[in-house]
Amino acid sequence: MEAGVEATDPARMLPSSAVLQVRDLTLQYRTRRQMVTATFGVSFDVHEGDRFVLLGPSGCGKSSLLKAVGGFLPPHDGSIALGGAPVRRPGPDRMMVFQEFDQLLPWQTVRGNIAYPMRLNHRFPAAEIRARTTAWLERAGLEQFGDAYPHQLSGGMKQRAAIARAMAMEPVMLLMDEPFAALDALTRRSMQEALLRLWQQTQVTTLFVTHSIEEAILVGSRVLVLSPHPGRVRAELGVEHLGFAHLGTPAFRALHDRIHALLFEPGEIADA
């Protein structure tokens, strides 16, 4: 872990350079019978402080992309570099938030879950970890539930705890794999707002996967639009100018429709 942090430090000192560089990335995964190509020749840069959204229909390999950046899926071709160093294995410099509610360790309290990665990696001086954990419990609105076990929490609370656990580590990058997809619509909206609030305080560089156009515009600052089977880049759009205040406005709807068209209308096929 220590090595991972060192490797990314130069990137943190140069705020304008890309934190994450993905080049011509082709990913394959194995099913029982065959190798499936998840993405083909995907390139993009994520800069410091971006909320970079990977948006696409199911089957566009967006989750595979995130797993590859997380170090769980080695590239078939192409490269992934974090702060200039190639990604080789999973590590806490890229804390992940998963869609599933069972990502918290059931044998640890909420407080224990948030503190655990910091302790494990000696990320902060031991004396600081308690205070940091308390601060993150409060920010996530879980101060009443620090001593509760994950099974006693609602789905939304579990996801907030997972986000707090990831952000508390102050990772180089925060990776979020459809973190709100399993929530009901009302909880989902309040979680999106909570995420933006928390992000304002940390400005952590975030890579966010979703299949919801609306969520991409609300949560993201930039959106990478991916096509399905296999996943290829269709467009990259800046969406920082639109947020919750613009829901239902013509500008919001126009962008929504434009992205919708990019996703679902067959584009021109360029020759390889």
Binding site: P90, P92, M96, D102, Q103, L105, L120
Partner: peptide, 26 residues
Amino acid sequence: SETVRMAGRNMGMRRLRYVFCLLIPA
């Protein structure tokens, strides 16, 4: 579950620590 496994490795658990601090309690 695959999610708990990935969460553990993502936090930086490896080898014996992965077995004793993640797999055995799970």
